[in-house]
Design a protein around this nucleic acid. Structure first.
Lengths: 188, 188
DNA sequence: GAAAATAAATCTATCAGGAGGTAGGGTGGG
DNA sequence: CCCACCCTACCTCCTGATAGATTTATTTTC
């Protein structure tokens, strides 16, 4: 049995990914979790606390997930496709990457949340960077800029593609666009 | 002197681009425009009407703007950089492309708005497609997929890059990422 | 061209509902 | 006993939205 705090975070994450941070409310969460609204305030006194906890968790969980993919014994292009698969998986149920949704409402965030979001982008890009460095070393990728910059580009693209694909074309569009990006860096 | 309706649309657009569609309210608009809240309801009875009008206007205005860029007597890579410049310009004042912000809150939209958003993506991609076709013809671009798919990829990327760059790195990051994308398609 | 009628735009006042948030009372396990 | 957890009840503020009076333009009529 999951503890309530975790359950709240899970539901909140799901709701935010689907409808955005400002459309999600404590009422929504409490209805789904099956507890009353003030009980959520017991775990997360203010909404900003919830958002911070969520971003911090996302920072760790997805960081680990990306690392695990990149540490696999595969070619780099394959790894990039697996990374894209993580985003595709969310899209399959109409969910956006937290960095994307929350980032699009950046101004409504508290300073601390904004900072965590910034750090999350930073560390995600760092993790991706490793893959692109490997790709250059093993000769499977040909890059015209630094691995860091390319990693940022790749991450940015996937956040955008999730949004556009959800609104028009769905998974198929996302998949095709991903192929365009990755193949343009693939050595041939 | 601008008419009130246009002024409302201008202010609403600005607010949505900065803080997202669900954080923007009629009160915010009325305070800035300098009229009372119910006066906005006179022009746009329901919020969905405002959003529809906004998306329809965006559809036309930016469509024309993109077309104007693509019809210039420049090389295609230069045109792509000019298109990116439009997004960079918004970013300079912390504003996201309407398709990006509104798209990230897709679920909270009415069917009609969702449809217009879909059409906007579709027609924007069509306009971009023309540029990529020209690029292949003139030999300045080398693509590994159809111009349509590459156009969708490019648009998606810019929407995502606006979000990530606003949260981390700013215009400089956006610019560098744009260069990565465009140069990867540039013939050499 | 002045007056009257019509239409458009804005106002004040108000509403119901939902947002985040608080106070304080149970309840059950270490 | 105490502390963590969840509850009921409530508060304030803001949301989109409506009704109806008032003002401002525009048009029609004499």
């Amino acid at each position: 049995m999951k503890d309530t705090r975790t359950e709240i975070l899970d539901v909140a994450e799901d709701l935010i990914q689907r409808m955005g941070i400002n459309a999600m409310s404590y009422k929504h969460i409490s209805d789904i979790v099956g507890i009353k609204k003030p009980s959520i305030h017991h775990h997360f006194p203010k909404k900003e606390n919830l958002v911070e906890a969520l971003l911090e968790r996302c920072h760790i969980v997805y960081g680990d997930r990306y690392k695990a993919i990149i540490d696999r014994p595969e070619t780099t292009p394959k790894k990039l496709r697996l990374l894209a698969g993580v985003f595709e998986e969310g899209l399959r149920s109409g969910k956006l990457c937290l960095v994307g949704t929350i980032g699009s409402d950046l101004i409504t965030l508290q300073d601390k949340s904004r900072l965590i979001l910034e750090q999350t982008i930073d560390s995600t890009v760092s993790i991706y960077t490793k893959a692109f460095m490997q790709g250059e070393e093993e000769g499977s990728l040909v890059l015209r800029d630094t691995p860091q910059t390319v990693a940022f580009t790749f991450f940015s693209f996937m956040i955008g593609a999730q949004i556009t694909a959800r609104a028009h074309g769905g998974i198929k569009s996302f998949h095709k666009a991903t192929e365009v990006i990755i193949s343009s860096w693939e050595a041939r």
